[in-house]
Design a protein around this nucleic acid. Structure first.
Lengths: 354, 354
DNA sequence: TGTTAGCACTCATTTTAACTGAGTGCTAAC
DNA sequence: GTTAGCACTCAGTTAAAATGAGTGCTAACA
């Protein structure tokens, strides 16, 4: 049996319609709504073939047909036409996100939110992370007689800090001196590279500060580890409640549970073909390995931040989600992020908001 | 008509039962389950009175009674006995939260999560904030030839940073010198207090760095403003889906929408009698001003962090939530937070987690 | 040989009606 | 003042019937 052009047109009609209505679609409806120039009976014959080929299925004998996973796959891989963003969508994106690389977290949060609003699906965004974080600069700064802060600049431009408390806090000048020494010791090193012999020497040199130096190193290590912990931003989880496929509260609850577990989300965003990780990937229904998300599809991609940092963006909707629009929107966002980051790398000012 | 002791006992039975079952309760059930020594008929008479007094109401003629808002109010204000936490609950709290003041955000996140798990309601926690933030210390640190970071320590012990980019970044020593000068200028000042005359003088002094100094001040101001923006942690939103009163998806969606809006949450936590803000407050059903949360009650309190900083914790559940347990748990958490902060203020080490 | 009209059949959904049972209010007797 | 008894109410459940969208098959048509 061949998948001729007419069959494909019918399949496309079924998928388009089902994406819009979430209702099984029958031969008569297709004949009426999409004038393919053939009668319902003919369509029925073709549908019967399409079912046998596995592209569509029937919820029960007397219902219309719905696309199968295989059907969606064919659709997104071959049939789907990429859509231009509308004027409104463009404008929305422009206004919703203040692309400000000085506040990455804020930007990621806004990105997640904007995507969720625009697509009315759920979005998940991870912060850009480099694989191995190394230390670019350390600076100790005074707070008061019992406290100092260790500020660590990492090579992915993240800046982290940690409070150090104790009874022997050096004064500002001393802190500067110590900072300089520590810097020459650890600059460019990752956590694993820090030579504990050198550290011991330094601790020995500043015995008058008690275990202050030790505490500093503890703080630095804790900081780097913290950085290696991935941040995840989610938005629009409630959007899914609007779709009839999740009107069963028990089902919805399961999905929500998944979204509250960070590790799950990270796994989710990590799925798919890694070799072409920067392209947009579409994971349909059961293709993901999570039982709870069997009725969901995921449109995801990586985005690059500078040379080594990679972040992930995923949009999660019902299997019958609007793939075409979703892909367009995601493409646009990634392009925008790239621009910002390009400007950033070129040393231009990203601008302060307000 | 007087609210005699017997009426109160009946009312208490109704509320207790309704909290547990979410089903209207009738006279016969009360007679059977709570042996008050009177017959259903008598209970019926008393219930009739209680209804007239406005403490209970009937969903429809042939249903049992449910507590009214007024009924709950009487209950939480006068009848409710405070409950000891069980051994398990104590243990859970102890293990779930690593009380580490060096990572306040993390601690708050864990607190929200632990409360949500323990109560199976939704929790909202805001970070401790002082009313007016003033600057304690500023330190500029080098990143590379085109970038430096401004690290600002605020008097609420928050440490914030901001990247500054430009073509004329001073070297490390110069940054230290400039840091010292800026410090003497702004130390102890709030944003509004910064004297622009002094700033101008400083800018004039370092003309060779272009607008670097200006950028620094811009960064500092932006940082303080950012700090004044309240962070909110939410957890357990999906818990509400488990309650029969929210099994209507449309209703649930409304509530979820509210929880995705930060401003709403802040308003919510700000409700209630401010004069006794550190006591636990209970806002029942429609007593809050949000239409969407008409079927929810809120148990909330402030917690103090050091002398001037205040954070808020709220637990949100259905109107028939288990007030007694919720209050106990909330009490315990606030006590625990107080202890940590006490230790912190005394200069002891809060400990690094790993 | 491909297309289509016609028809009997299927089955989820909707509609309707009867039944059930928890609960009430009232009255009269204890 | 308390309680047993009884008629009444009404949401919820169950069962049966009606509806209608959709199918597969067959036979006729172009």
């Amino acid at each position: 049996m061949k998948l001729n052009d007419r069959k494909i047109r019918i399949l496309e009609a079924i998928i388009t319609d089902y994406i819009a209505t979430a209702e099984p679609i029958g031969s008569r409806t297709i004949a009426r709504k999409y004038n393919l120039g053939i009668s319902p009976a003919t369509i029925r014959n073709e549908m019967s073939d399409l079912e046998e080929l596995g592209f569509i299925e029937q919820p029960h004998t007397s219902a219309g047909r719905v696309p199968s996973q295989k059907g969606y796959r064919l659709y997104v891989d071959n049939l789907m036409r990429s859509k231009e963003l509308s004027r409104e969508e463009e404008d929305f994106l422009k206004n919703a996100i203040s692309f400000n690389v000085n506040r990455i977290e804020y930007m990621m949060e806004q990105t997640a939110k904007a995507l969720a609003m625009l697509t009315s699906y759920t979005t998940v965004v991870t912060e850009p992370k480099s694989k191995k974080v190394s230390i670019k600069h350390i600076q100790l700064i005074p707070i008061d007689e019992n406290e100092a802060a260790a500020v660590v600049v990492l090579d992915n431009k993240a800046i982290k800090n940690h409070i150090i408390r104790g009874r022997n806090i050096p004064n500002t000048d001393e802190l500067n001196t110590i900072s300089a020494e520590i810097n020459s010791l650890v600059k460019g090193y990752s956590i694993d590279d820090i030579n504990s012999g050198d550290v011991a020497k330094l601790v020995g040199k500043y015995t008058s500060y008690g275990d202050f130096i030790t505490k500093v190193f503890k703080a630095v290590i804790s900081t780097v580890q913290q950085e290696e912990d991935v941040h995840v931003y989610t938005s629009g989880v409630r959007n899914l409640l609007g779709f009839p496929e999740f009107s069963d509260v028990a089902k919805a609850k399961n999905i929500f549970q998944t979204f509250e577990e960070k590790d799950m989300l990270i796994t989710l965003l990590g799925e798919g073909d890694d070799t072409s990780a920067d392209k947009i990937q579409i994971i349909i229904g059961g293709e993901n390995n999570m039982e709870e998300l069997r009725d969901c599809s995921i449109v995801r991609t990586n985005y690059r931040f500078g040379k080594n940092s990679v972040g992930k963006i995923g949009i999660i909707g019902p299997t019958r989600m609007n793939y075409s629009q979703t892909v367009s929107v995601l493409n646009e966002i990634v392009k925008k992020l790239d621009n910002v980051i390009g400007a950033f790398v070129d040393g231009e000012d990203g601008g302060y908001d307000e």
